[in-house]
Write a protein that binds this DNA or RNA. Sequence first.
DNA 1: CTGTTAGCGCCTTCAA
DNA 2: TTGAAGGCGCTAACAG
Lengths: 351, 351
Amino acid sequence: MPSIKKVAEVAGVSVGTVSHVITGSVRLSETLRTKVGAAIRELNYHPNHVARSLKTSKTRTLGIIVPDMTISFYPQIIRGAEAASRQHGYSLIAVNSDDDVELQKERLSLLRSQRVEGILIAVAAGPTPLGQISRLIDAGIAVVCLDRIPDRVPVDSVSVDDVQAAEMGTAHLLGAGYRRIAIVTGPLSLKNERRRVCGYRKALAAAGLTGDDELIWEADLRPERAAALCRDHLRANSRRPDALFCSNGPTALGALRALRDAGLQMPADIGFATFDELTVDELFSPAITTVVQPAYDIGCRAADMLLRRIEGLEKSETPITVRLPATLKIRESSRSFEKNDTISGFAMLPK
Amino acid sequence: MPSIKKVAEVAGVSVGTVSHVITGSVRLSETLRTKVGAAIRELNYHPNHVARSLKTSKTRTLGIIVPDMTISFYPQIIRGAEAASRQHGYSLIAVNSDDDVELQKERLSLLRSQRVEGILIAVAAGPTPLGQISRLIDAGIAVVCLDRIPDRVPVDSVSVDDVQAAEMGTAHLLGAGYRRIAIVTGPLSLKNERRRVCGYRKALAAAGLTGDDELIWEADLRPERAAALCRDHLRANSRRPDALFCSNGPTALGALRALRDAGLQMPADIGFATFDELTVDELFSPAITTVVQPAYDIGCRAADMLLRRIEGLEKSETPITVRLPATLKIRESSRSFEKNDTISGFAMLPK
DNA sequence: CTGTTAGCGCCTTCAA
DNA sequence: TTGAAGGCGCTAACAG
């Protein structure tokens, strides 16, 4: 692998000159530039970023940690972050935490050793040790949280507006005529999930309903577990809900399995809506009503903010919180034909 | 960010000693080790991989380029590759090529500059300039192709056994009683796709059928395009196929839309099977019969092979080709109830 | 067993 | 406009 020295040699100039044409830091004569360019091509020279980073102590690299990039929501976020990073000349290293606080710690440590200049993170579901993140910030590494926002850590963050999103979904179900709506959530140790429950409650209250805590079903993020939970609840002798609202994709998958196993038809027997596109929602039968998060944008915005911090453009002392609105895709699973088959779209709450 | 020097200072030893305890290269006294360890923790020291890489000219980093990690198949591959890499103490940088040969070239160049020690790549769909890959190899960077294997480039590769997989899928449809089976493919500029067509033909031939070229529908990898193509074909006045076999996920999504729009029911009006899990296949109605690729394993094996090359364990001069078998998940979309409702499972071809 | 030191490849003053 | 040289943090001889 040729070095700058070899290039200089072939071009018949000094290394300093080669460096100058590469970085474009100094104006050189046309002749020199072409001569050097020719040598570079001839040798198929690729500047050594490792050496450059060591010298400048700038790696132009960002890291992003997500629980599991196999969940379709995250690759979109990563793509957004990648696009924004690249636009600023940065690379992005994406790693998975497997929703495991210990692994997350290791990954964080590795990223630090790799000297990434900033980190984007959707924290693992367990109770995140506050130190893990604030230590980074103290060490001068910029951090922006996305999607999953940790409690009580003062840090910039970008996520969907959980409350609004859940409220919108729930309100839609209410507008469609459903009255006894259960919410199937992920672990309530996650702030998002709590906020979503909050939005759900708000919508109920706005409709003059008092929530029933028995209708808050806390699952985790494994579809099988959620399925089991829902099956149990649906079998219980207490009055069955007339609609299910799921606060995330994996949970929804589980819930759908439970409905299928219970032989319940949507929307006739039970209404259904969920956070997150199930990748191919529109081809489900019936198509599933979905609260869609702007995943790509979340990644984009988060990376932008991170870059602003790194480049010193953002000086705000207090953490910045960005909440992007979700959108509602109304499809067949929440059309309550029997009860009210004229309602369509995002109807207003009755009275 | 503290350096090894600072650690040495705090611990009251020389930098060499600190380096030794970190790398574990030399046996040191217990006392020293604990003293240094304490200093490391106190300073929250993280070894600078950049400097280490420069010194050792080993980055312990691999790169992987996929067309689009938003396609659910690829994150699984990446996860597999990540797991294998990590097991050998390597990191993995994943980037997207957007199926664009130019972008792919840029990414490759960046990865080179970052001095990754090896590259895993699923080549972009366009005609891949042979040079792009062979140049890397010439430069001493190990390369293993996965999933998408380029033509006429001598390089190690890992992918599903396309012929076997397509043959299995097609044979299953034949076994279910379908006779006029169309195959909806991605761009035939991709070797995989051609091999899949090959497997399809083989299965037809084995059943004593002569393929009809009008039933080979070449789409690209955008669902909308595939949908349009299928709609056109289904509307054409030539005799309609009684089953569709899709050779990849995005194409299948498009085909399913076309079927829905045409009001065709599976499996009654038309049989259906496809490569690749549509993420939530089992919840489609009807559930879709699928040829499942061992994506995680492909990533794993490919990374393993790459590492073996890097570590000089694999000396084979000729490229190694690994083809992993696919498995068939028979579900409702290919059960031809009307024609033959006793067939179930992967039935033998009727003589 | 522990300390000293020479670079790895590059960028960036500073001088010519 | 061009060249010379120091040093980023670390590892691996080698010396003590």
